[in-house]
Design a protein around this nucleic acid. Sequence first.
DNA 1: CTTTCTGGCTTAACGTTGTTATCATTGCTC
DNA 2: GAGCAATGATAACAACGTTAAGCCAGAAAG
Lengths: 209, 209
Amino acid sequence: MGITERREREKEEVRNKILDAARDLFAREGYEAVTMRRIAEAIEYSPTTIYNHFEDKDDLVRCLCDGDFGQLLSALQTQPVPADPVVWIRQLGLAYTRFALSFPNHYRFMFMTAPDIEVHEDHESFPGHLAFGVLRRAVAGAVEGGRFRAGSVDTMALHLWIALHGAISLLITMRPEHWPVPVPPDLVEQVLENSIRGFLREPPPQEKR
Amino acid sequence: MGITERREREKEEVRNKILDAARDLFAREGYEAVTMRRIAEAIEYSPTTIYNHFEDKDDLVRCLCDGDFGQLLSALQTQPVPADPVVWIRQLGLAYTRFALSFPNHYRFMFMTAPDIEVHEDHESFPGHLAFGVLRRAVAGAVEGGRFRAGSVDTMALHLWIALHGAISLLITMRPEHWPVPVPPDLVEQVLENSIRGFLREPPPQEKR
DNA sequence: CTTTCTGGCTTAACGTTGTTATCATTGCTC
DNA sequence: GAGCAATGATAACAACGTTAAGCCAGAAAG
């Protein structure tokens, strides 16, 4: 009865080789560069073999991004939760940013590209939702702890996400020389700090410098 | 001497027919649907004719977006400037949003897609810069008028733009059912108002409601 | 041991795409 | 009328995603 297991293991192995080759192309050169034929050449299989493991190119890249984003998520969930929920929020935002800017093509595909057709029928499994759940918990902690002013936790978490996404997506899309003003190196931190400040119950102490 | 003028006029005419056909395809079905052959069929010319008027497909779509975005810009510059700079900022943000959500493919191409190669060598002519210039003037007015707290006008305008872009780009990309929380219909207005509030010198009066 | 069958893989091909090389035609210039 | 510049069309190329057809090792059945 170990035969089918070995077969499945071999199949999984090929699947991972495909994903590795695709990840390499994707991370370095983007979606357009991920070509069935280039993947096939890299793993020394024929292009059609890929279709035994993935429905089509979109399915492949989606599996790739879901998996890699899942790793970010587990990193978010694994790292220790600071006592101060505001510190926690800052930490989450920076981890999110670091991932996005390290894997801009992943981020672009997941949050800046409209899917062709209906996908992720069970919306809860989408890694983005789980990541958002973590952020929401942090915001809820800040509200309960009195650090944030009262209000809709969902709305505040949403606004934080939107602000981060705005800065990140523009950084990914536009080259620095195309911006209307010089881009400060800590732009995302600024935006994050600004948004947080808008939700604080009391203005931050003035002893800052 | 009217001959060359007539020739240029005819050439311009064909160019406009190309742009019109392309705009129709682009606005309705997006970048991928804009096909040299479909454009050619629509205008009853051969596909290669398009290359007499545009360098390649990217050049075509870029000209299209630049032109259409230029119209938004002139609308921004034409409309009367309110006495209250904060009202002005709100007005600019809403006009920007209306354009983006009315022409999501235009917006996607201009602000959510990385250009393949160097483009727009003279950065000042990029319509986005001019639009940002208007916003900066409005913010400067708010600072000078004492409505906004003191600080870098560039930074405040940048943060406003980023917040708007974050909300708009997510609305364009994600279908409502994929959001982690229900999307309020006035999301962009919320975000805009929130950002403005963060820059106000004094908290807004409480007579609201 | 032989036969059957099944799943994984390849070869070859189809239909599109952007783009280019080549050529014809038109009509201005001299 | 000869040359020339521009405009357009035909045909083709290379690359793409994807699919149909068949090959073939190896498990399953007799």
